[in-house]
């Protein structure tokens, strides 16, 4: 019975950490006042580029760097179009999603149909490096040890990125300047902050972080390319919802990832839970899977509505979000 709980908690972390990457990346972008709806596509490009580079080089580090660079390049396109060329952010972001997912299929089909075939993850050098790292002592604690301290390096990295990002926003001068751009770009500009440079850097880094999340997704799903299903599978969209739920805070995003992950895992693991606890959790199998899938979006919708109805001053939504800044437009 304790095994069922451990597996449940373990699954929450192991299957949902891409949400943290997606969310942290998107928070960084939104803090600069840009709304990038291209998370799904950015993650897809990062995933496919990182995976193929990792398989060829046999190094997880190379895989991470390439997925960061590839997704960062997508971020650069987004910045170029929306910051320099003043294009509409919604349209650009959505196009990045369509383009990115299509790119995934294009590369996937091209490689699968090539003489060298699609590289399989199982038994490769990349796969060995993706093995869990047991943290000494801590991983021996029952339940918690398995849940939090026996994971692959990318899971620890995701949590470290979120914490560092929180520190960056709250405690450093560039972080403060970035938040100022998101709130009131005109004021930040008058104080001499180089808005264009700040937006470019943060959009590119944020997109790169999403890309590593995509790579994790690819590795965690065994790296097999299917012609009908994208690896990212909607996680990019859930990440956009999670940004709101986490109230634009990377620290809260860690918590939010586990909460959204909890529902996601309930959907997958309702049967073992119901069998292990027939009396208390037997009802779980009666709830349709689609309800759990929709739950992140339902909760986020409710959060959005309630916080706006209550004119919630605690909301950290950047005021200038979604609007381009053109100095001579004032």
């Amino acid at each position: 019975m304790i095994d069922v709980i451990t597996l449940f908690l373990f699954s929450i972390v192991v299957y949902n950490i891409p949400l943290l990457y997606g969310t942290a990346g998107e928070i960084m972008i939104e803090k600069s006042g840009s709304l990038n709806l291209g998370v799904e596509g950015t993650m897809a490009i990062g995933a496919v580029a990182g995976y193929l580079a990792g398989m060829r080089s046999g190094s997880l580090l190379v895989a991470c760097l390439v997925s960061f660079a590839a997704a960062g390049l997508v971020g650069a396109v987004f910045s170029f179009l929306t910051v320099t060329l003043q294009a509409n952010q919604n349209v650009t972001g959505l196009t990045i999603t369509t383009f990115g997912v299509a790119f995934y299929y294009f590369i996937g089909n091209a490689v699968s149909n090539s003489p060298s075939k699609w590289p399989a993850l199982g038994g490769s050098r990349l796969d060995q490096q993706f093995a869990p790292i047991e943290i000494p002592l801590l991983s021996k604690i029952p339940v918690i040890g398995k849940t939090f301290f026996s994971h692959t390096v990318l899971i620890y990295l995701g949590i470290i990125i979120a914490i560092v990002m929180w520190f960056y926003f709250e405690k450093t001068v560039p972080g403060l300047k970035l938040r100022a751009i998101g709130e009131n770009p005109g004021a930040a500009d008058s104080l001499g902050v180089n808005i264009t440079l700040y937006k470019y850097i943060h959009i590119i880094i944020g997109s790169g972080i999403m890309g590593i999340g995509g790579l994790y997704m690819a590795l965690n799903m065994g790296g097999t390319f299917e012609g009908s299903n994208c690896w990212i599978n909607g996680y990019g969209w859930i990440s956009i919802a999670l940004v709101i739920f986490a109230n634009w805070s990377p620290a809260k995003a860690i918590l939010g990832t586990f909460i959204f992950g909890f529902f996601n895992t309930l959907r997958v693991q309702n049967a073992p839970l119901a069998t292990a606890f027939p009396n208390t959790l037997g009802w779980l199998t009666k709830i349709p899977a689609q309800f759990f899938s929709a739950l992140p979006f339902i909760i986020t919708l409710i959060v959005l509505l309630i916080s706006s109805v209550r004119k919630n001053n605690n909301s950290c939504e950047p005021s200038a979000i979604g609007r381009n800044y053109y100095r001579e437009d004032r």
Partner: peptide, 12 residues
């Protein structure tokens, strides 16, 4: 209430 319509419609 000035709710962000982009995000609301996205969730819907």
């Amino acid at each position: 209430f000035n709710t962000n319509e982009t995000l609301v419609t996205l969730m819907l």
